[in-house]
């Protein structure tokens, strides 16, 4: 116990650095996947593109994110002979971001599609007969109703994403699990310590707890209509 208390400040500092990387990947993924998911959702609802986008979604959802990370990271360098990501940590973050954005956008797109198709067709028709354009109807009528409908399933995905970021360890992104595991071998004078690895769970728990509260607030804010 004494040893752990002694090691604590060093470990916390190291885990904080790792968690910062986790957070970066998390937010970059959300910022990229929210709009890309909408684009894919519209693609899978429009007749000419439908089959292409749905096949794409099938492939991405049907294969492990871990494999996708490996492919996105290594494929350009090993197969195309053009290592676009570079070797450093920023290159790994870029590769991980692209993989996560594409993967999560596919999941989001299905949630969006459910949200859009769940809105009664009467809402669109009411907008049309009032002389609104389709763009106006989307922005002023259906969008908020869609957001309300997708908050619960989105919350699920967002919380899963927090923990999925740890998969990027497979390409050695120095996120929090990587940082915790480093003490097993040797890092900053500490070696053979396994507790930091378990300790990382506290970070995930607190962060997902905060997100749960925030998303719950959003859900409540939107409960004024149904």
């Amino acid at each position: 116990m004494e040893l752990i208390l002694e090691q604590m400040p060093i470990v916390i500092h190291s885990l904080n650095v790792g968690f910062l990387q986790t957070l970066k990947l998390f937010f970059i993924t959300l910022i990229g996947a929210f709009p890309l998911g909408l684009v894919i959702a519209f693609g899978s609802m429009s007749p000419p593109l439908k089959y292409l986008t749905r096949t794409f979604v099938w492939v991405i959802r049907g294969t492990p994110l871990m494999i996708q990370l490996l492919i996105f990271y290594y494929f350009p360098g090993l197969v195309l002979g053009n290592p676009i990501w570079g070797g450093g940590e920023s290159g790994r973050l870029a590769a991980a971001s692209v993989s996560f954005i594409i993967n999560y956008a596919c999941y989001f797109s299905e949630i969006y599609r459910g949200g859009i198709q769940g809105i009664p067709v009467g809402q669109q028709e009411a907008g049309l007969v009032l002389g609104m354009t389709r763009g106006q109807i989307f922005r002023h009528v259906t969008l908020l109703q869609m957001i309300k409908a997708i908050v619960p399933p989105m919350s699920n995905e967002i919380i899963t994403l927090v923990k999925d970021t740890s998969l990027s360890r497979i390409i050695a992104l120095q996120e929090i699990i990587w940082a915790g595991q480093a003490f097993l071998k040797s890092s900053q004078g500490i070696s053979g310590a396994i507790w930091p690895l378990f300790f990382t769970a506290i970070y995930y728990l607190i962060f997902t707890g905060l997100l749960t509260i925030l998303l719950g607030k959003l859900e409540k804010k939107l409960s004024y209509f149904h």
């Binding site: 009664p120 009467g122 028709e125 009411a126 007969v129 908020l144 109703q145 004024y224 149904h226």
Partner: peptide, 13 residues
């Protein structure tokens, strides 16, 4: 033309 629907179709929000 104005239109009043059977199911109202008011904008709930």
């Amino acid at each position: 033309f104005g239109m009043v629907f059977q199911s109202f179709n008011l904008f709930p929000q």
